[in-house]
Amino acid sequence: MCYLGTKRFEGLGMAGKRRLLEVMAEAGVIWLQITGGEPLIDPAFPEAYRYAHELGMQLELLSNGSRLHKASVLDLLVELPPSKISLSVYGATAATYDTVTRNRGAFDRFAEGLDRAVRAALNIDLSLIITRQNAHEADAMRAWAKRLRLPFREYANMSPTIHGTAEPLPSQSPEHLTHRAPFTGCPAGVTFFHADPFGRASICKVGREPNVDLITEGVEGLARLGGIAADLMLRTGGCTGCQLSGTCRVCRPMAKVFQEAKAPLSHYCQHGMQEVAR
């Protein structure tokens, strides 16, 4: 169900990571969300995390929690607590969790790490990922979060990959899909930006092209992101002249990947919702 599609273990080495973090600090980045794939499996994570902390950034981790049971990882996070850790939950039992993640023993490792992180008083919230394979445990997942007294959010609406392919969509649980709130604008590329594993800055995780190479261009390159954002938000293609664009439920970059994936209109467009209603 991942919007990244096939993930590769590649990217900047530690020298590149330091350079990228320095550019971010020079640009005035206050809040840095570290995600992946799974960021905790990167051998350079501890050094990069420490350096970002030294540069004064508030850090958020998006993780599947598969490494939190390791003392070296937990000790680092206790020593230098992140502002928040958001952990994805894929089931409430070992049988379901391991099936969804296709990783035997994943549930036991996650449960152990979660328990240790809670006892360490780290600031955790949970992202309950509800799919066809684990929808029957949705109530149990909610109960688990409540038992731990942790805030949680639910994610059932999957998007196509950033490459415009549809493989995440069949994992959706139809009865758990919700209507997206109307899109009323976004400061992507203006007050925040995304950087990929190679240091290429884009307006967000979805709208990745055009981008700016922060390693070679430095902080000056970020000045171009505002113009890129304005161009990417223009209604084009099948959305040109749409009379419902004022209350559209997705931004233009997201609509583009849905269109490229040939997803049903009902997944992202009000026209499709009207057809379903009929």
Rank of each mutant, 00 (worst) to 15 (best):
L244D: 11
E137Q: 09
V29A: 07
S66V: 00
P264Q: 11
A156W: 08
G28R: 14
I162E: 10
E209H: 09
A261S: 07
G113S: 04
L150I: 07
A181D: 10
L4I: 04
G227R: 09
E217S: 12
G189V: 03
R200P: 05
S88V: 00
L244V: 00
D115H: 05
D98P: 02
E167V: 03
G218E: 13
E260M: 15
H69Q: 10
E275L: 15
N211P: 02
V23L: 04
A201E: 10
L222W: 05
A166I: 06
V100M: 00
A117K: 09
R180K: 12
S159V: 07
H136T: 05
N103L: 05
T191L: 07
S266T: 12
S127M: 09
P174V: 02
P187I: 06
V89I: 08
L68T: 15
N64R: 01
F192M: 04
I129C: 02
V78K: 12
M14H: 10
L225Y: 06
F258Y: 12
W144S: 05
V89R: 02
D75H: 14
L225M: 08
G5C: 00
K205Y: 13
T161M: 04
G207T: 04
A135S: 09
L32V: 02
A181N: 11
G272E: 14
V276R: 13
S83N: 11
T93P: 00
R119K: 11
L222G: 06
G207Q: 07
E209G: 08
T236I: 05
T161Q: 10
T178R: 15
L59Q: 13
E60L: 10
L12Y: 03
Q274H: 15
N123M: 01
Q274K: 11
E60G: 14
K70Q: 15
A121L: 06
R153W: 02
R132Q: 11
P187F: 04
L225G: 09
